[in-house]
Amino acid sequence: MNIIYFISFVVISTASYQRYPFEGSTFGGDDSTEEINLFPGIPIGNDIFYQVHVSTNGLITFNASITTFTPNMTSSYPFLAPFWTDLHPKTLKNDSVSYKVYRNKSLLKNATNDVRNFSKTPFFQAELMLVVTWYNTSFHNKKDHKITVQCILISDHVSTYTMYNFINVSTSDVGDKIGIGFNNGTSFSNPYSFTTSAYRMSTHIGNTGLFGLWFYTITSDKNNCIFGTCEHGGVCEDMYRDFQCHCKPGFTGKRCQTDVDECSARPCDQGFCNNTVGSYHCTCFIGWIGKHCDSEEQQNNTVCSREEVCCKMSLHKSQEDTVKHNSGTVAVLSALLAVVSLGSLALAVLTFHFRRQRIPEQTNVTEETYENVTVTNATEQESSIYTNLQLSPNANK
Rank of each mutant, 00 (worst) to 15 (best):
P21A: 11
K90F: 08
G206W: 08
E368C: 12
D156L: 09
H157C: 08
H140Y: 12
K143Q: 10
I154F: 09
Y50T: 05
R19T: 12
S220T: 12
S75V: 00
D242C: 04
H316R: 12
F69N: 05
I218W: 11
Q298L: 09
C236K: 15
T112S: 10
N113Q: 08
T196F: 02
N141A: 02
E307V: 10
N117W: 11
L345Q: 05
D269T: 10
S341F: 12
C311A: 05
S344H: 04
L350K: 12
P360R: 14
L59M: 08
N165D: 06
P393V: 04
C310L: 05
G253S: 03
K254A: 04
L391F: 07
K248H: 03
T14P: 01
C273V: 10
S189A: 06
V303I: 15
P82W: 06
A348H: 14
Y99T: 03
C304D: 09
Y280A: 00
S318R: 07
V332K: 15
S119I: 06
Y17D: 02
S264P: 02
I167S: 02
G24Y: 09
C225T: 08
Q390M: 10
A335T: 15
E368V: 13
T283M: 07
E307Q: 14
T121Q: 13
G250C: 03
L350N: 14
L153A: 02
P122Q: 13
V132Y: 08
L213M: 07
L213E: 08
E231G: 00
A335K: 15
E380R: 10
P71V: 00
K397V: 14
Q298H: 11
P40Y: 14
K324L: 14
V373F: 08
H53V: 01
L213T: 07
Y280C: 00
K109N: 08
